[in-house]
Simulated scan of single mutants.
Amino acid sequence: MGIGMGLSMTPATGAITGSLPREQQGVASALNDVTREFGTALGVALLGALLSAGYRGATDDRLHDISGPLADTAREGIANAVEVAGSTGTHAPDLIHAARQSFVDGWQQAMWAGVAVMGALSAYITLRGIGGSTTDLGDELS
């Protein structure tokens, strides 16, 4: 991921700022930074929500032997599940295993959603092409 970002971010920033007159390059650079930061925050929030929903859904399927407030606490997150495992007696190893597997399931769900979004964006960029879009930015900043 670092190699990909390193190879794409610097040329993209250079293309954005280089397409504008010198007096507007600061604004273009700031706009580039804001969109990158906003996209990162939005991506983390959406993928985190998918991970959490996937975890909860998977724990519902796996925690059928444990009920009550301990199971409810375990469904809130993997850290909570590990914390309450000691209070479940003989079910502790099963609870920890279920929480770990549920976390992996939620993680996979979130990562596949990320792959789908990146695939769609890659297809859009490939079909639309990159050329011509930087002049629109210069027109909007004028």
Rank of each mutant, 00 (worst) to 15 (best):
I3K: 05
I3C: 08
G4Q: 03
G4Y: 11
L7H: 04
L7S: 07
L7V: 05
S8E: 03
M9T: 08
M9Y: 14
T10R: 11
T10Q: 12
T10L: 15
P11R: 05
G14D: 12
G14W: 02
G14P: 00
G18R: 06
S19H: 12
P21L: 07
P21D: 14
P21V: 09
E23L: 07
Q25E: 08
G26C: 05
S29W: 01
L31E: 00
D33N: 14
E37W: 00
T40H: 04
A41M: 13
G43D: 04
L46M: 12
L47A: 15
A49K: 07
A49C: 02
L50R: 11
L51D: 05
S52M: 10
S52F: 09
G54C: 03
Y55W: 07
A58D: 06
A58E: 12
T59N: 03
T59H: 01
D60R: 13
D61P: 00
D65E: 14
G68K: 05
D72V: 03
D72L: 08
E76N: 06
E76K: 08
I78F: 03
I78P: 02
A81S: 10
V84E: 01
G86T: 03
S87N: 09
S87G: 08
G89T: 02
H91T: 01
A92W: 02
A92I: 02
P93F: 04
D94H: 12
H97K: 11
R100K: 10
Q101N: 08
F103W: 06
V104S: 12
G106D: 11
Q108R: 10
Q109F: 10
W112N: 04
A113D: 04
M118K: 04
M118S: 14
A120H: 05
A123Y: 10
I125D: 11
G129R: 08
I130A: 14
L137A: 09
